[in-house]
């Protein structure tokens, strides 16, 4: 891994690291690291900085569903056009083109089961090139983006080990 990739992987696991801290951690001057990050942001290698939130701990936990969508690709545009028609909706949090038994995997977040179901039946299923949809509701999140949701963070080592 070169320094640029090391910085990316550090930021991916903790976006709160400052450029000054990153500089010390990777052993490069702060100005160089600042420039590297600015370049990565400018060329859209870094697209944003998100917090990993466990919404279950709040009163407004959304319902998340994973929708398998089978579609007919369109001449000259493949899957991109239909994918775009789907992922532009705010409810769609992720959208992937897949190999295997279906084509698009769409991850949707909404307020309730009903909202998700209505969204699929109103906005996705009726599209011309959509052949079928299958909705799977997520019941519990164990791990997301490398973060475990229910791990106990206790250090059970001895107080002093020489």
């Amino acid at each position: 891994m070169n320094k640029k990739e090391e910085i990316l992987s550090l930021l991916e696991s903790n976006a709160k690291l400052s450029a000054a801290e990153l500089a010390v951690m990777v052993g490069r001057p702060a100005a160089e690291v600042e420039k590297t990050i600015a370049d990565l942001e400018a060329n859209k290698t870094i697209l944003g900085y998100n917090a990993v939130v466990n919404w279950e701990k709040t009163s407004s936990a959304p319902v998340t569903a994973l929708i398998e969508v089978r579609v007919t690709p369109q001449r000259g545009q493949g899957f991109d056009h239909i994918a775009q028609r789907i992922f532009r909706h705010d409810q769609v949090k992720s959208c992937y083109l897949m190999s295997g038994g279906f084509d698009l995997m769409v991850i949707i977040e909404d307020k309730s089961l009903k909202d998700v179901a209505m969204f699929v039946s109103d906005k996705i299923a009726p599209l011309d090139s959509v052949l079928s949809t299958q909705t799977h509701f997520i019941l519990k999140k164990y791990k997301m983006n490398g973060t475990e949701f229910h791990s106990k963070d206790e250090d059970n080592r001895e107080a002093v080990v020489l």
Binding site: D155, R157, E158, A159, V160, V161, L162
Partner: peptide, 9 residues
């Protein structure tokens, strides 16, 4: 905070 432990975390 224990930085007194001679084993991996």
């Amino acid at each position: 905070i224990s930085l007194s432990i001679g084993e991996p975390d």
